[in-house]
Design a protein around this nucleic acid. Sequence first.
RNA 1: GGCGCGGUACCCAAGUGGUUAAGGGAGAGGUCUGCAAAACCUUUAUGCGGCGGUUCGAAUCCGCCCGGCGCCUCCA
Length: 482
Amino acid sequence: MALNIYNTLSRQKEEFKPLHEGRVGMYVCGPTVYSHSHIGHAKSYVSFDIIVRYFRFLGYKVLYVQNITDVGHLLDDGEDRMLKQSKIDKVHPMQVAETITHSYFEDMDALGVLRPDISPRATGHIIEQIELVKQLLEKGFAYEVKGSVYFDVRKYKDYGKLSGRSVEEMVEGTRVETRSDKRAPQDFALWKKADPEHIMRWPSPWGEGFPGWHIECSAMSMKYLGDRFDIHGGGLDNQFPHHECEIAQSECATGHAFATYWIHNNLVTVNGQKMSKSLGNFVTLKDAFKKFNPLILRFFILQSHYRSPLDFSDEALRGAGAGLEKLLNTVRNLRHELARAGTESRTADALIDLAMFKARLRETMDDDFNTPQAIAILFDFSREVNTLLNTGTPYTAASLLAIDRVYREFGGDILGLIPEAIETGGSSNGAMEGGLIQLLIDIRKEVRAQKLWALSDAIRDGLKNIGITLEDKKDGTTWKRG
RNA sequence: GGCGCGGUACCCAAGUGGUUAAGGGAGAGGUCUGCAAAACCUUUAUGCGGCGGUUCGAAUCCGCCCGGCGCCUCCA
């Protein structure tokens, strides 16, 4: 079965066909680095992380570009986000950018989001942006007014094709007062003249100024991926106006199509309410991580589809935490068995229809990256694995390894939920802690043999209190954290 | 006002024309166990917001209605 992707441009699922055989060029709108990342960022970048991982699993050579916006993102009142934050913090805007960029990657790393191949900064590509604006002026798609340059939306017939809006509708819907220096209210800035007190400024053919927000993504995506590439992604909220403007600029500048597939992830709500900075109910990842392990957040996000909205609540997160633990527990037990299988003479082959499970997983991921369905299949798979492990039958290392490979490929490589190394308990990792716990387990075994239950339970409860859980199995006791 | 998305069990959430409506959490009962924990088994929607329609057949398509949310203005 071929990979099918929902393309916002056509509003339907389409079979993925790369522009260049075996390669995928992908650009995703990255964060504006003025404040710490929140759970909305997590949903977006985890979603695209899955897409990148799955393409790589399928054997594509992926070039993943995700920008860092550190200039040009203007607020309603025309003030630059970066400048506003720098005034609040009383530091240089580039210091804000640097601090928040570090913070962003720290949070994404915690969530298991693989780093983009290229993370271009807008301020590092002023020259490219100016070049693009010059091209648009030369071709007559833009006009200059008092040191600022605007894109003339009426010159581009397809404006609105991504978001399904017409220019006429937009005029009617415009609430903000029409800026006097624009020819039409829908026109958007490519380059803005800098006021005297504006710190972030660069020389240009139109005087000192700074780039508009939309232009950076056109300039940087085309610089690194070519003026045509496969996938452009971002949050649904960027569909309009940001992506619509990007398409207009890029297609007018090059004279041909821009990105082939447009992918948009849905947004996040908190306790049923829209999460927004103006409402002040946004949850930063650093705060969320204090309550929930980052992997639990990742699991929670992947348990719903990327095109579905996701509502965050503590109850839902707790449920996700229990679910993830169930999954990891099985893998932990499997690897524990695997560690022993190598040293004991094992006889039986573990009988699970691995080919069937792998085919189901492939099929469901091929259907527009259906991660919730994939997770459900992993749970089906785990039920069989648990049953197998509970029989106490000795299995060959090879057959257990084959089972583990399914977890590694789909649960690890693709979904990023199952860590390379899970605490296996029992087996000594050379750490003193592990040795001490094993010593207590051995002593407790003796105590239990003498049926001294009170003492036996005291050991187990004591360990539980310091975060170590013992589990008595048919063939011995194992331990885990938590 | 314009555009768009979805209403599936106590909670989260797949499924989008056809055998018994996935999966996870929570609850209940059971098996195993000294007891726990974990695991496994059984169980919790004759029904998928409501009302009509199309069809041999609809949660799935169409229409209307009722509530929910998002975008149109900065946000991933």
